[in-house]
Write a protein that binds this DNA or RNA. Structure first.
Lengths: 125, 125
DNA sequence: TCTTGACGTAGAGTTTACTCTACATTGTAT
DNA sequence: ATACAATGTAGAGTAAACTCTACGTCAAGA
């Protein structure tokens, strides 16, 4: 069970150009068939899903590349990879905390706007 | 009490080039003195702080520009601006919820790594 | 057989948000 | 008066992450 780049593009939601770009960046290296066409595996689907998660949580491609390089080396790099993920989890926690603070402040601003608008409406006698 | 661009750069933490860029984009238009030098006010400090909050919560410059344009029109646009902020608050809530989901998944992944590493260590008799 | 559509590579172009350069003026300290 | 630091404008350059173009190959259906 494997996928052409077109099929893989559909199941992952990434564009064909993006998949080739990711390959160029060594994030994902699919196998090739006899006529040099890319063949993506089931495992590649999970891997892309994880790449998307890292991206969605603000990890730059450069760092995902490092992770991908370790992953390509196999089990010997397990703890190094875990270290990266633990660090990234901390940065994720920080991001969430900051956004929550921003939410509080935004709530206050909106409350202020509500008061201003009420005041201006009732000021017209 | 007003500030030259150099002073204002220091109090806001934005570079001089960035301040000029923001002005070019009509985000903030300081007064000018007799010799055409920019003069930023105390109010501008609060305004930049708010711009930074909008940016930190993912609002693109294009949209901040819209907000800034409404703000420049004065009180008549108060409810329109509030509408923008309410919408933005929703997007912020969505962002936070998504990041929290990612955090959960990342926790699981890390737990899996921990088990794998333990398994591989104990597998060496 | 012919053509159409998916795929291949290499490299150019796009978008966002700055960031920097070049060069002219102006304000200030000596 | 003079040096030098800060500021002014216009426009070029940068970084990240795609996104697209041009052009060639290949496999399958009418």
């Amino acid at each position: 069970m494997d996928y052409s780049i077109g099929e893989f593009s559909k199941v992952t939601g990434l564009g064909i150009h993006t998949l080739r770009y990711y390959e160029h960046e060594n994030l994902i290296i699919p196998l090739r068939n006899a006529s040099n066409r890319r063949r993506y595996s089931e495992k590649d689907i999970a891997w892309i899903a994880f790449i998307k998660r890292l991206k969605a949580t603000g990890m730059p491609i450069k760092e995902i590349k490092k992770y991908a390089a370790l992953r390509a080396e196999g089990d010997a790099t397990l703890s190094e990879r875990m270290e990266m993920l633990v660090q990234h989890r901390q940065s994720l926690k920080d991001q969430i905390r900051k956004l929550q603070e921003h939410e509080t402040k935004l709530d206050e601003k909106i409350a202020f706007y509500r008061h201003e608008i009420e005041r201006l409406c009732s000021d017209t006698p």
